[in-house]
Design a protein around this nucleic acid. Sequence first.
DNA 1: GTACGTGCAAAATGTTTGCATCATT
DNA 2: AATGATGCAAACATTTTGCACGTAC
Lengths: 148, 148
Amino acid sequence: MADIRKSFQKAGLRHTRQREAVFAALCATNAHPTAEELFEMVRECEPGLSLATVYNSLDALTDARLCQRLPSNGGPIRYDADLRQHVHLVLPDGRVLDVPDHLASQVLDSLPEGFADRLEACCGIPVGSLGIQLVASEPIQTKPARDH
Amino acid sequence: MADIRKSFQKAGLRHTRQREAVFAALCATNAHPTAEELFEMVRECEPGLSLATVYNSLDALTDARLCQRLPSNGGPIRYDADLRQHVHLVLPDGRVLDVPDHLASQVLDSLPEGFADRLEACCGIPVGSLGIQLVASEPIQTKPARDH
DNA sequence: GTACGTGCAAAATGTTTGCATCATT
DNA sequence: AATGATGCAAACATTTTGCACGTAC
């Protein structure tokens, strides 16, 4: 709670009830919710909130590097407040799970020192921190379910 | 060309001029184009083509496992006719590059035998063939540029 | 007090669908 | 001939934007 105020301050973000509620909800889950899902969650304690504000808040939080957008397969964007390097498993239906640490480390530890630098050199593109996603494609990869 | 007819037949897909043109264009590039981009490419040799047909064709090709959808960060879906296991680098602007083989193999070779099985066991979810995406997040992760 | 956030509604994207027509098997 | 693909336009889902008002600093 006070942590959030501090994070906002450090990031140069103004503190508002709505923003705090969105960020708190995002921090409280590891389900990588969509904007719509966050809207539903937050609306319970913040009834006046509008969906556009959720999007605005998430944009601001992302720009301030307090959360990240996750690539997902055609469906709505999912957000994650966990910025530590970890591994995501993207499911055919659009959900995103955190890969448990003991498996994630098998992937992360095997990346040689300087891998990102070599990648940058190869591709001619600044790469920054590297997110890792494992994309499951079973069963039959029909068009990913949109969660209407 | 005749290969495409054969692929379609094997997959139980009807052969049509439009579908062949879409698939040929997709096979001819490694730029992981969006439906819109394919539409532009194919329209030059197939002027009557409609965008909806491109989407329909890509759905059919994906269901038939002749191509795959790639997760991308909020922007339009990108498609890839290369189904071999390889590694993608997702750029902040939404583009997707193939990671060169010598770097990709550093990731792929380090996945222990049976990794996917353990992942399935952990997450309780059939995982199938595992796509791997490295997600670059530099520079400042502002909202990913939509390629209007 | 000023700069910035919010809420609403409308626009902009990206994708899907209904239906009449046409092509492939 | 029958099944399924195409093209068009309209629907739909997701995200962004313009503007009037309110709030944090």
